[in-house]
Design a protein around this nucleic acid. Structure first.
Lengths: 354, 354
DNA sequence: TTGAAAGCGCTAACAA
DNA sequence: TTGTTAGCGCTTTCAA
């Protein structure tokens, strides 16, 4: 008979073994024993037994009793995206350092799924929730508030809970300006009708970026028209189609390209796969997202790195306040020049036998 | 008084409201009522009340009672990596489609942290565990077995539980061969001492890849020496250092480069950031990982895309068997030619107002 | 310094 | 067709 499914030891087992009551065992094992004035020696006895029998607390039972679980949630739109997965990485580290258990889930940018997912998390008596890139943060707020769960919006702001977001307006200005600057020494200067924005949709981040783009473009190039804005959603496929359509119509790409996110940038890649190098000979791309590989493409790619570390640090700071003000905290993103390979959260992970 | 932290409705509340007993309410609300032969009308009554009072089950209580939680875990080395985050993405979709709740956690490739993390998950009565890229799958197995938890290794195999891994040997042969082929029309053919492998360490995947690399290299180029293998660990920093050292010594890069993973590839990017374009004029890179941006760099980059969808599909299939054989299942990876932008899990996500 | 007892919300025999 | 009851493993008064 293998120790297959051997029942885990409980405080009652240890209670019997030690001759103490369950409540004493409980106190010893959850760290409250000093303030319950339990004798050092009994504590040691019980701790020894616990070790010996590989006791680990049943966290569901504890959670049920305390109506809190020790779980801290991060709700993401998607996992497989550099921005969000780096958020997940720093989130985990932060939560762990607070002695809690991180839970990361994605909801596909679908308002229904967001709500359902959050309900599930609440049903597990999650303690705190970080809501990143939610399409509908205020509804999520509703659920959290009703359940008395502390929560913070990240990346996309809500109107009912504190929000920490990237300064999309400033970032977009920076990026757009950098694109334009890049043409300073070009044979012919960049004309307003040669600078386009692709990607994004009608969410707060996109709107701010579009505003930043248009403002600085008008300032520097004197003009901007609606036609230069192509909000293709957050999908590589749609973005590719938009590029194909543009190319079909114009016979070339815009020389200056502001791309709303790495997801949209992948749409450009799909377009690239269908067209020869020469198509991209003369273009400058700015991408509102950072990807190290993207930074080394065969044309100048200027990128924006959103500062997930600072955003999360701020978010953790806020969530610990008793009554955080419902306001938006802007975090400045960073402009990344072409051919730059930044360090990331992975760099702090040790690599033993490297 | 806002509905701040208003207590959630329980089956007892509904029991009172409906005039039925708690067990009836419970049965109705967890779907077992048909087989408990509860009248359709009472079921409807209770469901109506539940809706009205926004009842949601306390999953910790249910889990405690059932000694299972409805949670399914995926243990990853890291989040912010394309391979693993795409694994997370498909994992979530799969788990959701089974009506369970996915939990993704990372453990930094640290055996201690892996064990601690799994213990925590077990303490939450997780139902099943998918162990991806664990440095020490067999110890993790020990914990799962003791707790009676079904588990499967992914990516890095263990000897005690079924494993689904990428066919690293074949993949490496494919990739190496493709690198060599690429020099067929070159001015001078590739010599054995011009083809190097960088990255990886002493884990199963790396060993297999190195074997595949060396075998096919010897077959095609007639020779391979230990000096051509540079296992720099899974860290961009170390890899960069290795490239710098090589360059310092030789005054140039190897013309043929097999890079063990995208993480190591980032090390090459960091090296690139310090050196002019010309340094890379003549090289061909093969990377054992797929990244769409990596595929479009200014030199030929051949990549391997590991088939996470198939791996997870197989893993789910196995975990559902009552007594799965402890064997290794190989999944064939895919060779990706330069300038290719593949579709990914994101493509199946709808994008509403695109 | 410790123990007894109640209860968190839910499920599943067993009875009725 | 439904209700009664016990208990999952833990914490926390309150009493000793």
């Amino acid at each position: 008979m293998k120790p297959q499914g051997k029942k885990k030891a409980t405080i009652y087992d240890l209670s019997v073994l030690s001759g103490c009551s369950a409540s004493t065992v409980s106190a010893v094992l959850n760290g409250t024993w000093r303030k319950r004035r339990i004798k050092e020696s009994t504590a040691e006895l019980i701790q020894g037994l616990a070790e010996q029998h590989q006791y680990t607390a049943n966290l569901q039972a504890r959670g049920l009793r305390n109506s809190r679980s020790g779980l801290v949630g991060l709700l993401l739109p998607v996992h497989d995206n550099r921005y969000f997965s780096s958020m997940a990485q720093t989130f985990e580290a932060q939560v762990r350092s607070h002695g809690k258990c991180p839970v990361v889930v994605s909801a596909s940018r679908d308002p229904q799924e967001e709500l359902a997912t959050v309900e599930t998390l609440i049903s597990y008596s999650i303690d705190e929730l970080f809501i990143a890139g939610a399409t509908d943060p205020d509804s999520v707020h509703g659920l959290c508030e009703a359940a008395g769960i502390r929560h913070i919006n990240i990346d996309l702001p809500g109107t009912k809970a504190p929000s920490v977001i990237s300064d999309n307006y400033q970032g977009a200005r920076l990026l757009t300006q950098a694109i334009i600057k890049r043409f300073d020494d070009a044979a012919s200067p960049l004309k307003p009708e040669e600078l386009f924005l692709f990607g994004g949709r009608n969410d707060h981040a996109s709107r701010e970026r579009i505003k930043g783009f248009r403002d600085i473009k008008t300032e520097l190039l004197g003009h901007d028209s609606d036609a230069c804005i192509q909000p293709t959603g957050y999908s590589p496929g749609m973005t590719q189609k938009a590029f194909e359509a543009f190319y079909e119509r114009e016979g070339k790409l815009p020389r200056g390209l502001f791309i709303n996110s790495s997801i949209n940038f992948e749409g450009l890649l799909r377009f690239m796969a269908q067209h020869p190098h020469e198509t991209f000979a003369d273009i400058v791309v700015g991408c509102y997202d950072y990807d190290p590989f993207g930074s080394f493409l065969p044309f100048p790619v200027i990128m924006i790195r959103q500062d997930t570390e600072s955003m999360l640090a701020k978010a953790f700071e806020l969530i610990e306040e008793t009554r955080p003000a419902v306001k938006i905290h802007l975090i400045q993103p960073e402009l990344v020049h072409p051919r730059t390979a930044l360090k990331g959260p992975l760099d702090s992970i040790r690599d033993i036998d490297a």
